[in-house]
């Protein structure tokens, strides 16, 4: 039992460490002494395998530095993950709180709209949004926010329903406090706390979705690097030079796993706190 708890602790630290690495890479990509992600590495053949020399993570099918592209790709993944999670959480909070607080027809109307979004498979919706908008990070973030809003909204609604009947909310209502104030002051902090763990889980989903979209050729336009795009580019060389796929795939894997671990731990911690309160 103790061994298990220690393993849990270790995986959390590893997850946090990897996220820190990705964040550092994303923030510092421009400042690091890296090669350009768009230019060929001079004097090195295309598809040179990884090694200390001549190029740490090797070169891609054209001859560009894989290391530079992976580091710059981190920026895209992280931006999409955080941006879409923030947007989806904001939209989900607004709709979920409204549905849970006002109930009746507001709840029904919001429910129908959310169901309509859920009825379309996430990737199909994402492809449609990507095809309509300008190719770029902003479009992908927007599309993912639309896809993610129903999940956040359902969670927020359930949390609101759980909180709204507590004494302090009932007291505020009885005192004639305006709904806007109750929502902002009493409900929002509580509901945000309950949603936060899911934001990490959603970021994990967003990273995969962004990579899938790039993989389908609907992500960032070339030569901008993204992990999914790199995996797609490396696909024809899977047999001879699997590292071209392997390196970005491991990055996606570790990032998704880390977000999942952090979200899971945050949720459990929150649950424990809840159970002690009651």
């Amino acid at each position: 039992m103790r061994a298990r708890r220690e393993a849990d602790g270790l995986s959390l630290w590893l997850a946090l460490a990897w996220v820190a690495v990705v964040v550092a890479a994303a923030v510092l990509a421009g400042a690091l002494p890296l090669r350009s992600y768009g230019a060929l590495v001079p004097g090195v053949d295309a598809r040179t395998p990884p090694g200390w020399r001549p190029e740490f993570l090797g070169t891609d099918a054209i001859g560009r530095s894989v290391l530079a592209r992976v580091v710059h790709g981190a920026r895209e993944s992280l931006l999409v993950g955080i941006g879409s999670a923030a947007l989806a959480m904001a939209a989900g909070l607004a709709t979920g709180l409204a549905a849970g607080y006002f109930r009746r027809w507001v709840d029904t109307a919001i429910g129908v709209v959310l169901d309509a979004v859920l009825a379309v498979p996430a990737l199909v919706l994402l492809i449609a949004v990507a095809a309509v908008g300008r190719r770029g990070t902003a479009t992908i973030v927007l599309g993912l926010a639309v896809v993610g809003t129903p999940s956040f909204a359902r969670l927020a609604r359930a949390s609101t329903l759980a909180v709204v009947d507590r004494e302090y909310v009932a007291a505020a209502r009885a005192l004639g406090t305006r709904p806007g104030r109750i929502l902002r002051r009493e409900l929002l902090p509580e509901v945000v706390l309950r949603l936060a763990p899911f934001a990490f889980v959603f970021m994990a989903f967003a990273v995969v979705a962004e990579a899938s979209l790039s993989f389908l050729g609907l992500g960032l336009p070339p030569p901008a690097p993204s992990w999914g795009g790199m995996i797609n580019d490396g696909r024809p060389y899977l047999d001879g030079d699997p590292f071209l796929v392997f390196v970005p795939a491991v990055c996606v894997f570790l990032t998704v796993a880390s977000f999942t671990v952090i979200g899971e731990r945050a949720r459990r911690r929150f649950d424990a706190r809840e159970s002690r309160l009651r």
């Binding site: 990579a211 899938s212 993989f215 995996i231 796929v245 996606v252 894997f253 998704v256 796993a257 999942t260």
Partner: peptide
């Protein structure tokens, strides 16, 4: 856990 973290296309 590993499978969950692996994107379908990978």
């Amino acid at each position: 856990s590993g499978l969950i973290a692996t994107p379908p296309f990978v």
